[in-house]
Design a protein around this nucleic acid. Structure first.
Lengths: 149, 149
DNA sequence: TCCCATTATGTGTATATACACGCATAGGCG
DNA sequence: CGCCTATGCGTGTATATACACATAATGGGA
């Protein structure tokens, strides 16, 4: 084993790269969305519900690419702020999350801010890198696929 | 404002994309590194120290692209496990983190696992996407300027 | 020498993230 | 109907993340 030279390879680590990128991008969105009382995670949660309508926690977790139990906590935050309501569905096991009127309003208000940051970032990193990042994350098809009428 | 069509744009959200990608990639590394008692964050922390040698908390935070206070907590975890030691330096304000012998050993043991996951991911996403991701995480100074103290 | 802006850090709080484990319901099958 | 497995969730615990605020030391002037 060539000790030192092995370590040098870790400068190319894709995990660190992805996490650094996500942290930097998230900080930009968090800062910009602050006046709206939202963080990036909460914004994504609301937009996911707006796009695909009321859905179970598991479905939403899958949509956002997060663990189901993570979404349980994230939804609790949104619910405490009156942005989302959660109630049992036809299947008594499932709990269906849906936007409240307030949640819809906050999301609508935040959209202009989101658009501005999104546009700035896209220009900053270049459209090619942006497309590459979206492909990497599972592609926009995941969001559009199941019919966002 | 055309309500519905606005929401559709959020399917292209770079923040969600970067976070989804980071979560998915992190889960892969976390799972693989588990036998070594490390998570991706701790691995990155150790490799950062191995690469650049003993350094202050602020310098390490900048290197990893995370908030300084985040690194304080992350280092505490590594220290509790005896992987890292933290002590004041010449400047009494600063605290210098350095790998312990145990930390160096654990890192060395984990390297083979890291290489395997790194190689698998690179093939999976394609070398072009991997390069793009790395450029994104370290290239655009504007991205990191906000958070890197 | 003393003061003050700068620098380096820690803490309190809130949120985000996920694994292990346990509970409750749904659905098929004898 | 009664049982068994699969499905959908919540909780306990640990870690990761960062902002607001507070503390401590450095270094250069007045």
């Amino acid at each position: 084993m060539a000790g030192e030279s092995d370590i040098l390879q870790t400068t190319q680590c894709l995990c660190l790269a992805s996490r650094r990128a996500a942290r930097a991008i998230t900080r930009q969105f968090d800062t910009a969305l602050r006046p709206h009382g939202l963080r990036a995670t909460q914004f994504s949660l609301l937009s996911g519900l707006a796009l695909k309508g009321p859905q179970s926690i598991g479905a939403l977790a899958s949509l956002l690419g997060a663990d189901r139990t993570t979404l349980t906590r994230n939804l609790a935050v949104a619910e405490a702020r009156g942005l989302v309501s959660v109630a049992p569905g036809d299947d008594a096991r499932a709990r269906i999350a849906r936007l409240t009127a307030e949640g819809r309003r906050v999301l609508q208000d935040a959209l202009a801010t989101w658009r501005a940051v999104q546009a700035g970032l896209t220009e900053e990193m270049g459209g090619e890198a942006a497309d590459s990042l979206r492909r990497l994350s599972g592609g926009p098809s995941l969001l559009l696929a199941a019919g966002a009428s």
